[in-house]
Simulated scan of single mutants.
Amino acid sequence: MKLDSNNHSVFSLNYHLVLVIKYRRKVIDDDISERAKEMFISLGEKYHIALIEWNHDIDHIHVLFKTHPKTELSKFINAYKSASSRILKKEFPQIRQKLWKEYFWSRSFCLLTTGGTPVDVVREYIENQGMK
């Protein structure tokens, strides 16, 4: 296992994040997912978050990422959800046909540590999302 480090610590912090569309509306296509991914990467840099794997289904996304010990994950997730909601609804007006209020994402989120599960197993699970 490869460990990350900074001046004062050595760590391996991998997380699996699931974000669901408000009301589980079926609005995510490949273009919307790709734009959401770009925003995740861009904002993630400011929070020392590195994307490992990304995939989507029509009503939710799965993200595998790694981060530093000092990263405030809830602040990052809320900032991401807020910014991406605003930008996605602006850039993809067809979203408004299914989500007419201000929200894009559900208020909740699922954040899991990869714990004892090998990252490759989680990565494979995320890669296979949306394939039925």
Rank of each mutant, 00 (worst) to 15 (best):
M1K: 10
S5D: 07
N7L: 10
S9Q: 09
S9W: 11
V10P: 00
V10N: 01
L13C: 02
L17Q: 05
L17P: 03
L19G: 01
L19Q: 04
L19T: 03
V20R: 08
I21R: 08
Y23N: 08
R24E: 05
R25E: 11
R25Y: 00
R25F: 00
V27T: 03
I28S: 04
D30W: 13
S33H: 11
R35L: 15
R35E: 15
K37P: 09
K37N: 07
M39V: 07
M39G: 09
S42Y: 10
L43F: 13
L43M: 15
L43E: 10
L43Y: 10
E45K: 05
E45R: 05
K46N: 15
Y47L: 12
Y47K: 10
A50M: 10
W54T: 00
H56M: 03
H56Y: 14
I61W: 08
H62K: 02
H62C: 03
L64S: 06
F65V: 05
K66C: 10
T67N: 12
T67P: 06
P69W: 07
T71V: 14
S74D: 09
S74N: 12
S74C: 03
K75S: 15
F76G: 06
I77P: 07
N78G: 04
A79K: 02
S82M: 04
A83P: 04
S85H: 05
I87K: 13
L88F: 01
L88D: 04
K90W: 03
E91A: 02
P93M: 04
Q94C: 01
R96D: 06
Q97Y: 13
W100P: 10
K101Y: 15
Y103H: 09
F104K: 04
F104I: 01
W105Q: 01
S106D: 14
S106C: 12
S106R: 11
S106I: 03
R107F: 14
R107G: 13
S108D: 02
F109M: 04
F109S: 06
L111G: 05
L111M: 13
T113M: 02
P118E: 11
V119R: 12
D120W: 01
V122W: 06
R123C: 08
R123K: 15
Y125F: 02
I126Q: 09
E127T: 10
E127N: 13
N128G: 11
G130A: 00
